[in-house]
Amino acid sequence: MNSTVVTSPTTDIHAALAQAARPQPSRWAQRLGWGLLLVVSGFALLGPWLISADPDRQDLLNALAPFGGHDWLGTDPYGRSMLARLAHGAQLSFLLALLTTLMAVVPGVLLGIVAAWRGGWLEKALVALADMIMALPGLLLVLLVIAFAPGHFIPLCLGLALALWVEFFRISRARSAVILQQPYIEATRMLGFGPGYILRRLLLPALAPTLLTLASFAMSTAIIGISTLSAISVGVRPPTAELGSMIVELLPYYAEAPALVLLPSLLIFLLVLALQLISGGRKS
């Protein structure tokens, strides 16, 4: 019996996607990407320092103030400064998203490479595990992990990562299997280079662009995932500013102050766009 038991066809597309996304980004797109990333991450990293307003300070009588007043971006329904909340929110969200993505990418990629490298029963076992996890609804996993320590960040990231790692495992396994069969790898081995060298110099560089594209989508998935969890009240606790939960908090006011709901989404959009521009997009 061969590996069909546990191999799912999704590996095909990941392999195809991986090949397709080979990096030859046009220079202007990449520059634009770096520029955007600099602006967005600058806002997230330095914003909380530079903006003196307290993101949690409420002023109920100054609720939903318009743009351009004392608070540049107006205030939220509690009269808190939107600018300060966006800066603090961006910092926390990007950090959580980065952490979640790392927690998904590192084990996912390592296990994927190990599976492709070693093959045999180890590969079958790992693929079976990944398939099992995929067959369980992601939301169930997240809810279950969170339920052990509601309101804490680490279980939140862990739960999301538990649902996200499978994708990275599948793609790096499929891609590594293709690469490891290439003649040049065989040649490198014959020349006496060890697995560490092959991993660092040949395998990871070949995997990197695809992984970066996927990881940038995974970051937005993580932030949106947190917002979805906030919508069913298991996300971040008040009064913490976090982009996803801010969207949920501001949603009821969409008719009165539509810009408020869209601002956090805009930040997520810019971050993902920057990462995508840097990593992908092929010249014609």
Binding site: S26, F217, S220, T221, I224, S227, T228, A231, G244, I247, V248, L251, Y254, V261, S265, L266, I268, F269, V272, L273, Q276, G281, R282, K283, S284
Partner: peptide, 27 residues
Amino acid sequence: RAGGWLDRGSQALAIGVRALPPFVLGL
């Protein structure tokens, strides 16, 4: 037409849709 305006436009649209939580999109 990889790299053309349609390619770029659809990429931006795709990222935009993914940057909105489904409940915001729904509303």
